[in-house]
Amino acid sequence: MISVYEYILIFIHLDLGIVSGQNANSIGELISSPIVTLILTCIIFLGALYQLYSHRINIAGIISMICTLIFFIGYAIIDEISLISVLLFVIGALLVVIELFVVGAVLGILGFISIIASFVLVGDSILNMGIIIAVSLLVTTIEWVILVKGFNRKIPFFDKVILKDSTNKESGYTSHDDRSHLIGKLCTTYTALRPSGIILVDDQRIDAVSDGSFIQKDQEVRIIQVEGTRVVVREI
């Protein structure tokens, strides 16, 4: 059993580049121990979630990335990590990033599942790692509730890619040219209205309908109603 003092010496030697294979294995065993693994996974998930709800890269996101490297390197040292686990993590991370640019949640969900699976497959006991991941997700869920419900935090990236302005008439948006100013205006029929046809308004051709009666060509009419693109006229 290696004491805390000996672990400190190991990390010092690591910084100096003179760690022996035995010391490297000791570091790997320390990182892969249940308590340290739980602490690392909690920090990874908590930091990643906090970074997701932040406007810029912060210390939480940086620490999360560092802990992720330590986690995988530690298990790689003791040869308890597979290529599948690494690939699942990389693919999951890519899917989550792509999800930020794509409407929908399918890619994000698949990416999240891939990341969780990559952590569960690390180590020699899927059951133990599954329990650790479950505890980490529980703690992360509590953080999410605090951020969203307590501090009303939102994912900043979505503010840039999602249109939040109301596109109604009250907000100044219309899906067509506003012709309400034509009500009461006198014009002439360019074609016969049977009951629909074309009228001339200041030498501009506009589709129109009569208020019910048939109107011949070149007749003077008055615009009595405008509803969207529908212009209703009445013969004078």
Rank of each mutant, 00 (worst) to 15 (best):
K185A: 07
R194P: 04
V201T: 07
L9D: 15
C187E: 02
N152Q: 11
F151A: 04
G17W: 02
T189A: 11
A134M: 10
A48I: 03
A60R: 01
H176F: 09
L138T: 15
V96E: 10
A60I: 00
S213M: 13
I63F: 08
W144F: 12
I223R: 05
I109K: 04
S114Y: 01
F214M: 13
S175R: 08
I155S: 07
S26Y: 01
D165V: 04
T188A: 03
D177S: 13
E170D: 15
Y190W: 01
I133D: 05
N58Y: 00
Y75G: 01
D202P: 08
L110F: 13
F71P: 03
A105I: 14
S3M: 00
H181P: 06
I62S: 13
P34N: 04
G74I: 01
G123A: 07
R56Y: 05
H13F: 08
I133T: 07
T37P: 04
I27M: 02
S3P: 02
I39E: 01
V148Q: 11
T174F: 12
R179K: 15
E6S: 08
I199R: 13
H13C: 05
E6W: 00
S82A: 06
I132L: 12
I66T: 13
I66H: 04
L83H: 06
I62M: 12
F72K: 05
V106F: 10
F151I: 07
Y50E: 04
V135Y: 03
S54W: 01
I126K: 10
L147R: 04
G74K: 02
V103R: 12
V90N: 09
S175C: 03
K185Q: 14
S85H: 03
V145Q: 14
V233M: 09
R179Y: 09
G228C: 08
R194A: 08
K217R: 14
I126N: 02
D211K: 12
S180M: 09
T141C: 10
T229H: 13
E29I: 01
D124K: 15
F11W: 14
D165E: 15
I116N: 08
T37K: 03
A117N: 09
L88N: 09
D15E: 09
V135C: 08
T229Y: 08
S3K: 09
I12H: 15
Y173T: 13
S175A: 15
Q22V: 06
L16G: 08
I98E: 07
T37A: 10
V19D: 06
D207C: 06
V102I: 09
C187F: 00
G197T: 06
I10E: 09
I206W: 01
I59M: 11
L88E: 03
G108M: 00
Y75R: 06
A117C: 10
I78A: 05
V120T: 07
D202E: 15
R230I: 10
V232H: 05
L40W: 01
I116Q: 05
I12F: 12
Q204N: 15
I133R: 02
Y5G: 12
L38A: 10
S26C: 02
R222M: 11
F151T: 07
V209T: 12
Q225N: 15
Y50A: 11
E6F: 00
I8F: 12
I43G: 02
C67S: 11
L100C: 05
I223V: 05
L52M: 15
V96P: 08
V161M: 07
V90P: 14
V103M: 11
F101S: 14
A117R: 04
F89L: 14
I91S: 11
